[in-house]
C-alpha cells in the first residue's frame, strides 16, 4: 500500500475516533447543544476530507494512466456541504450551536497538520527505493 493510502486511512481513523469522543460527550455531559453542533461539523468535514482524498487519488491515477478525461477537485461540493451545515444550524439553533459547528468544520485541518508533523520524518528520511 502506498504512503498516500496509509495517510488516508490514518486521517479517517483519527476523524472517527474524534467523532466517537464527541458522541460520548453528547451522551454523558450536559452540553448537548455544543456537542451536537460539534458532531454535525465534524461529520460533514469528515465527509469533505474523504471526498478530497478520493478526488486527489483519482487525479493522480489519471495522470499516471495518461487519461484525457477532465477531472475536478470537487470544491463546489465541499463548499455546498459546509453551506448545508450552516443552514441546518441556522434552522435549528436550539439543537446545534453555531460556534461548535464552525469548530467542528475546522477539526480535519488539525488532524491533517498533526498527522503530517508526526509522519513527515518517515517520508523525508527514507532512503531511495525503500
Amino acid at each position: 500500500m502506498s504512503d498516500y493510502s496509509y495517510m488516508m486511512r490514518r486521517q479517517l481513523k483519527w476523524m472517527f475516533y474524534l467523532l466517537a469522543i464527541l458522541v460520548l460527550g453528547w451522551g454523558f455531559t450536559d452540553y448537548q447543544t455544543f456537542f451536537s453542533g460539534m458532531i454535525l461539523g465534524a461529520g460533514i468535514s469528515a465527509f469533505n476530507l474523504w471526498f478530497l482524498q478520493v478526488k486527489i487519488n483519482r487525479i493522480g491515477q489519471g495522470i499516471v494512466d495518461r487519461d484525457e478525461k477532465k477531472r475536478t477537485l470537487g470544491m463546489l461540493t465541499r463548499l455546498a456541504t459546509a453551506a448545508l451545515a450552516a443552514v441546518i444550524t441556522i434552522r435549528y439553533p436550539e439543537i446545534f450551536d453555531m460556534i461548535a459547528v464552525i469548530i467542528g468544520l475546522m477539526t480535519p485541518y488539525l488532524v491533517i497538520i498533526i498527522d503530517y508533523l508526526f509522519h513527515q520524518t518517515e517520508l523525508t528520511t527514507r532512503k531511495r527505493g525503500e
Binding site: 502506498s2 469533505n48 486527489i56 477537485l73 463548499l79 480535519p108 491533517i112 503530517y116
Partner: peptide, 23 residues
Amino acid sequence: GTLQTTMFIGVALVEALPIIAVV
C-alpha cells in the same frame, strides 16, 4: 504518493478559508 500527499495538504489548507467564508 509523496506528491499527492503534498498536494492534499496544500489543497486542504487552501480550502479552509472559503469554507469559513461560506459559513
